[in-house]
Amino acid sequence: MPITRRLNLLVLAAAILAGCATPSTNRATVGAYRDSIELNGRLAVNYQKDGKTESLNGNFNWAQRADHVDVELVSPLGQTVATIAVAPGMATLTQAGRAPLSAPSIDGLTQQALGWPLPVSGLRDWLQGYAVDAQGQRFGASPANNTVVTRDGWRLRFVDWHDAAAAQPVPRIIHAERAAAGDIQDLSIRIVVNAAGQG
């Protein structure tokens, strides 16, 4: 067999094998959505306000049930900065030494109290690898399909996974960015999920 033909056959065989041997991470998608989860992690927040760059870091504890979410924001030194409770039609945010604040929308309430919007309503989905895209369609992330723009204007990237090769990988690092939110510009939130469990 001529060398040229032999090389062409080898290239063709390699291409066929490559097509058959698609890595499992390309096929993997997140597992079914769960109403009840408990997890904790870290937040790094950066944004522009009044021409100044603001940066915040801390930890969070998240407990979610079908109709309720409880969030605790904790400083790097371990002090509770705020607690958030979200129930149908009502959200309450409490900071140490201050009277609790309540509003129908948690996202607007966090911006009022914290100075930046923590997207708690979106995080119900994001922490499990889901979102609602700009067209209103349900999006399920995977290591091979990890970026989406949400219906309310967040650009999400699921950067890393606890086990990318698993049949149903779990997000570990999520980047969320938004060009503007009220008087906040260039808002970015880096979320690192340490642990997750079913409640």
Rank of each mutant, 00 (worst) to 15 (best):
Ala144Ile: 07
Ala91His: 02
Ile173Arg: 11
Leu101Arg: 13
Leu17Glu: 11
Thr150Arg: 04
Ala44Pro: 00
Asp133Lys: 01
Tyr47Ile: 03
Phe60Cys: 03
Ala195Leu: 07
Leu123Phe: 04
Ile37Cys: 12
Ala165Lys: 12
Gly197Phe: 09
Arg178His: 13
Trp161Pro: 00
His162Ala: 09
Gln112Pro: 02
Leu56Phe: 13
Pro23Ala: 09
Pro100Phe: 02
Ala21Asn: 12
Ala18Leu: 11
Leu156Val: 03
Pro119Val: 09
Leu127Ala: 11
Gly182Ile: 09
Ala15Leu: 13
Val86Pro: 00
Ala99Asp: 05
Val170Gln: 14
Gly51Met: 12
Ala82Met: 05
Glu38Ile: 09
Ile16Glu: 07
Leu77Ala: 02
Ala15Thr: 05
Asp67Gln: 07
Ala144Lys: 09
Cys20Trp: 13
Gly197Leu: 03
Ile84Gln: 00
Leu114Lys: 01
Asp50Pro: 05
Ala180Phe: 05
Gln95Asn: 02
Lys52Gln: 12
Ala195Gln: 06
Ala21Leu: 10
Ala32Ile: 11
Ser36Pro: 02
Arg5Ser: 04
Leu93Cys: 02
Tyr33Leu: 11
Ala179Arg: 14
Val120Gly: 00
Leu114His: 02
Val148Trp: 02
Gln64Leu: 10
Ala164Leu: 12
Ala21Gln: 15
Ala85Ser: 09
Ser102His: 02
Ala87Gly: 07
Gly89Ile: 03
Ala181Glu: 10
Pro100Lys: 00
Asp35Gly: 09
Arg5Thr: 09
Gly108Asp: 12
Ser75Cys: 14
Ala82Gln: 00
Leu39Asn: 00
Trp126Lys: 00
Gln185Met: 07
Ile37Ser: 05
Ala96Leu: 10
Ile191Ser: 01
Leu109Gly: 01
Val170Ala: 08
Tyr47Lys: 02
Ala103Ser: 11
Thr4Val: 10
Ala141Cys: 12
Asp35Leu: 13
Ala181Asp: 07
Pro100Arg: 09
Ser121Met: 00
Val132Ser: 03
Gln111Pro: 03
Leu56Thr: 13
Leu114Phe: 03
Pro117Cys: 10
His175Gly: 11
Val192Asn: 02
Ser105Pro: 01
Lys52His: 13
Ala28Arg: 09
Leu9Cys: 15
Ala85Leu: 06
Leu12Met: 11
Gly58Ala: 09
Ala82Asp: 01
Phe158Pro: 00
Arg98Trp: 05
Gly58Phe: 06
Val30Phe: 11
Ser55Asn: 14
Ala85Ile: 10
Ile84Met: 09
Phe60Arg: 01
Ala113Met: 13
Ser102Leu: 06
Arg42Ala: 15
Ala21Asp: 14
